[in-house]
Each structure stands twice: as C-alpha cells, then as structure tokens.
Design a protein around this nucleic acid. Structure first.
Lengths: 342, 342
DNA sequence: CTGTTAGCGCTTTCAT
DNA sequence: ATGAAAGCGCTAACAG
C-alpha cells in the first residue's frame, strides 16, 4: 500500500475539487477559507496523510523555523543543561534545533556554520571551540554579511560583536578566592602553615574566560594581608589534561593549601588526581566553578561557584528570538552571575 | 555593505558569463566541467560568499541530509552519551542532526515526528517516551507509510517492527542478581540474617525494559537455595520518584538487604534516599544499571551493569545508514549487552 | 471566499 | 563541455 511519494497540496486539491492555493490557505490561514470547505480540506489532508514539505515552504517564504546550536561537546554536562533549556524553549516557539558537536575542530565548526546558512537557519546559538583572541574564524564575516541572528553562549569570539550570554567570570574568580580566604587562608588554624599556596587548574592559557577568572582570583587575594603563592596549570577545560597536570604538580611540589578548578571537568580531574596520589580530602581545600553533578548524594561537598546553565541557555534563546524578530537591533550581552554553593 | 539576500547560483552565472546549470555542475560534479571554467566559477562563488540553498536542493532532489534524533530527555547522561555518538558519526557521513527533546509528552513526540517528515529527514533515531505495550502512537502508521528509515534506540514501541538497538535487559537483571547472590545473599557471613530482602527500584510498571530486567532478577534468584523476598517499587526512570519511593519504603519497612536500581537515575535516587535516612552505605548493598558518572573520583564504588551508550548510539546510526541506503531491507534488532563493573 | 499566475533556487532531462 | 526548458511543492500578489 505504501505510496512512497507523500501527498502534496495538489493531491488534496484534486481530491476535493479545489485549487492548490485554497488548500494552502485552509491549512495555514484557516480564517480566510469558508468553514465548510476548510473542514473538507482538513479531512482530505488527514485521509491522504498529508505532511507539508518544509523545503518547499522554506524556499518560498524565505524564513525557516530552524535554530542552530553549535557547541564544542554535547557531552559536557554544563552544555547539556543549556541544550535542555534551548530545546525546551525553542519548541515552545515552534523552532526545531539543528545540533552540531564540533569536537573542538575548527573545520567542523566552520562546516556547521555553513550548513546552518544553507538551511537558512533563523538564528544560531554559538559556543565556539575557543575564546582565545587569536581564534578569528573566517565565518565571522560571512555571518555578519548574512545578517543572520547570532548569540554566543558562554564562550565568545574576541572582537566579533555578536550578542552573547556570558558568565561573570571575574566575579566567579573573586568569589572562589574570597571563600578560600575566609575559610582557609585566613583561618586562624592555618595561619601558621606557610607558605600558603593556591593551585589554580585553568583552561587554555589564552582563554579569555580563564584569564578573567584568574584575574578575579588575584583581585580578591590582593586584598588579603597574607602572602599567597598562586600556581597556575593551563589545560583545556576537559578532565584528562587537568588530571595529568595536577598529578604532575603533586608529584613535584606536594599538596598545595588549596586547589581551584576553573570549570567542572577540570575540578573533577583535579579531584581524581588527588585521589590517585592518595592525598586525603581533608588535608586541603578544593573549590570549583560549576556544580559537580550528583555528588551531594554521597555526602561529598566541594564548594563551587555555580552558574545556572539552564538559565543561561534560556536567556540565549530569548535573546536570539528578539534578534530574529528585530534583525536591525544592536547586539547585546547578558552576563549571568553564579553563586557560591557549599 | 551587508546584502541581505545571499548570492545564488544565478548570481555566480551572471558574474562569470555562464548559465546556472554550468555553475551547479562546477560546484557539485566538478568532473563534468572544464577545469578552467570550474576554477573561475569557484573563485566567483567564494568572492560572492555563495552558500547553496539547502531548501532548493532538497526540494529538487527528494533526499535530504538530515537525521532526526527524538528523545525523552537530552539531559539524561545516558542519552547524552548516545547523542555524542550519533552526532559524531552522522557528521562523518555528512548528515546534520535535528534534535528533539520530547520532555515525556506524547504530543511533542508526535510533533517531532511530523516535523521530521516535513523536513524529509533521511532517517529517524527514536527513543520513545514510553515502552509500555499500550503506548501505540498514531504516528507509527505514518512512519510506515512514508517509508522513512527508523531505528529505535533503547526503548521500543511494542509491536511496531522498526529496527532497533536495545540493551540486553534480561541479562542485566540476571547479572545484577547473580552478583548479589555471590557477594551478599549467599555470603556466609550473611546467611544468618533472615529474611533476605531485595528491594528493586524500577521504572514504570508496564515498561517492557523494567519487566525484562525484573524477569532476569527472578531468574537468577530462583537458582539459589536461599529464600529471598523481592519488593518492587515502580517509578518512571527519573531520580525524584525513586528517591521518594525508596525513602518511603525505608520509613515503613526499614533497610532491606540489598537495593537494585533499574537505571542510573533511579539508583542515584535510591542512594540519595539512603543518605537522607541516615542509612550507612556499609549496612546494605546497592547495585545499579548503567554507570554512575564520575563517582569513582570519590572512591565510591557502586557495582553496576554498565552499558556502553556511545556504542549503542553508534550502532543505531550505522543501522540507520544501512536502511537509508537500502530502504527495502527488512528491519533488524541489535542487542547490546552490558558488563558488570564493580 | 476562491482562482490565476508566477517564482523561490536548484537540478534533471534533453539538446547542442 | 555547455545550454534551454521544465518542474520540485509551496505561497505572495493580484484578480475575480
């Protein structure tokens, strides 16, 4: 029975003895068609299993109901939260999501953008593979020329002035350092231990986010009378390199007074390094950025500056929708501030 | 400068003094065009910032490079793994992913399917909101009629004979129960404790997956000389209901000998309940299905029957690609077996 | 309220 | 190796 070619508007029209355009109207602008005919048409559509052809429609009206989400890695739990928010709110506005995982590869990112342009995406939420100043992919100018709505999420392309939802990274650094000052470095029972050493496990050395978080740390520490040595280990925001680097540090310099992981996976990597080197959790403080999933269940508490990824994703989509509706609008940046959770 | 309307093949043709079709060929079938003109065309395309219009192409050739992934919840870590795999392998074959999070809502699932049909998706990977026998959404017949490639992943629609990648659920139950027999119930030091009670925190009562896992449990336990009481708490594969149900059970009946969580989130919920009721981890055994993310970092071990979600996702995509290439092919089911990890 | 005409951008004939 | 014409399915603009 299975007719391979699916029914078109013309099929319905023939079926009910009307013309294409009436059918089209009955389906898309019901108020323009007499209720009786409208019902006949709907019935026929149902009977024939009619499904509108999104390509034909998209070709004709030059708008599409597609939104692209381009990310480094979909399996990063923090981005997963954002995807959930974006997807959840997009469907409320009748947009579908084209998802691209770029795996950290510039060419895949470029290809994702090109694919989105070819699908006439209404907008793109972009979390680039890198926020280093020297990462200036060629697609930037293409995006600008195309006038497509773009919102950067979390990471931003330095210098490109697309709208963005970013985290308050300086504050995150300040907040974490402040916490360490109060609970560790300036804690009376630790004052004798010297020197005080803070190990920061960071992302890439040129990463704007890492540098901001680090700047926050230094800013807070500068306000303290205590002299605190800060060691920085550069990495790439994933677990494995952080694990290696922190492990290596421990082997050579021994445990610091405290460790600060600049994101979730880095913090987990650092914790794993401590565990693998047999450093008891009580002997030093660990603090991180972003919540470590589910660990409260095990009575483990690692204080964290937590950012609400769902909220950030939602804001990004809202900003994008605004821009889709009003393309001439100047670009905006929304900053999401985290909160310290013990 | 920004010309809003992007360049078309006709623009390029005009630019180089040729016709549409030659340009089209130069871009898609380079071998059919003289190298010299081909290069001129490519140059012009670059200069004009030409991006092919996927809608126009899709409309003409009735194939698309879109694959749909429809899931209950993108933030379930187990599905996140699968998304990673699917996305990663899809792009290798030049397919883009349309992602739908159905939030457990039948109408959103139906809408997702319809949207995918309207975009002429080459194939759909579907993990339905439910695998209860009475969940028989209307879109099933539509999918069959449309001849689109469909692969079910993890959960399946009972009775619909689409291809599928499923887990070996009976075995998972057997394996977990076997482990408990060896390490708990038949352990000499526990033989005096009676009665032996196993609490199974399950998914929905009618869920095919839950029933299979449970059948596995009973099968293994039946082989034991010991009499073991099995209590089952039905839930819905998410954390919160499992937390509630297990907590309630503890309040009324006290700690069982062992707890078996039928998936990741259920197990986490059960652990949280134990923790909230102050039941020390050592006093009873907990076992689960699917790996609990990152907990090894904290020296916590919960034995689990672990399924490789990445592998399952990859298999699903491979199966889908096979079917796209060979639509008449009969449907197949691949079963992925887990492994006990302590 | 319904129909005619035309065209979105691309590619498939069938010529040349 | 290149071109002319036609049409994929749908809808905007203008009739009637």
């Amino acid at each position: 029975m299975a007719r391979n070619r699916s029914a078109t508007i013309a099929d319905i029209a023939r079926h009910v003895g009307l013309t294409n355009i009436t059918v089209s109207r009955a389906l898309n602008r019901p108020e323009m068609v007499k209720p009786a005919t409208r019902d006949r048409i709907r019935e026929a559509a149902l009977a024939l299993g009619y499904v509108p052809n999104a390509f034909a429609r998209g070709l004709k009206r030059s708008d599409s109901r597609l939104i692209g989400f381009v990310t480094d890695s979909v399996d990063n739990p923090f981005y997963a939260e954002m995807i959930k928010a974006i997807s959840s709110h997009a469907k409320r506005h009748d947009y579908a999501i084209l998802l691209f995982d770029t795996d950290g590869e510039p060419w895949l990112e470029a290809k994702a953008i090109e694919t989105l342009l070819s699908y006439q995406a209404a907008g793109i939420i972009l979390s680039p593979i890198s926020d280093k100043p020297d990462y200036q992919p060629e697609y930037i100018s293409q995006l600008k020329a195309s006038n497509i709505a773009v919102v950067q999420l979390d990471r931003t392309l330095q210098g490109a002035d697309f709208s963005a939802v970013v985290l308050d990274n300086i504050w995150a650094g300040e907040c974490a350092a402040q916490y360490l000052l109060e609970h560790v470095f300036e804690n009376p029972k630790n004052l004798d231990k010297s020197p005080a050493r803070l190990l920061v496990a960071a992302g890439p050395e040129q990463s704007h986010i890492s540098r901001e978080r680090l700047a926050g740390v230094h800013h807070s520490l500068a306000a303290s009378p205590r002299e605190i040595t800060v060691d920085v280990l550069w990495g790439d925001y994933t677990l494995e390199p952080a694990l290696q680097a922190v492990g290596h540090f421990l082997d050579h310099y021994g445990p610091p007074t405290a460790v600060f992981g600049l994101n979730q996976l880095i913090t987990l990597g650092a914790l794993k390094a401590l565990q693998s080197r047999g450093v008891p959790r009580e002997t030093l403080s660990v603090i991180g950025v972003d919540r470590l999933p589910y660990i409260d269940i095990f009575d483990i508490t690692v204080p964290c500056v937590v950012h609400d990824g769902y909220h950030a994703g939602q804001k990004a989509l809202e900003l994008l929708l605004e821009q889709i509706e009003n393309p001439s609008q100047t670009s905006r940046t929304i900053t999401v501030r985290g909160a310290l959770v013990e």
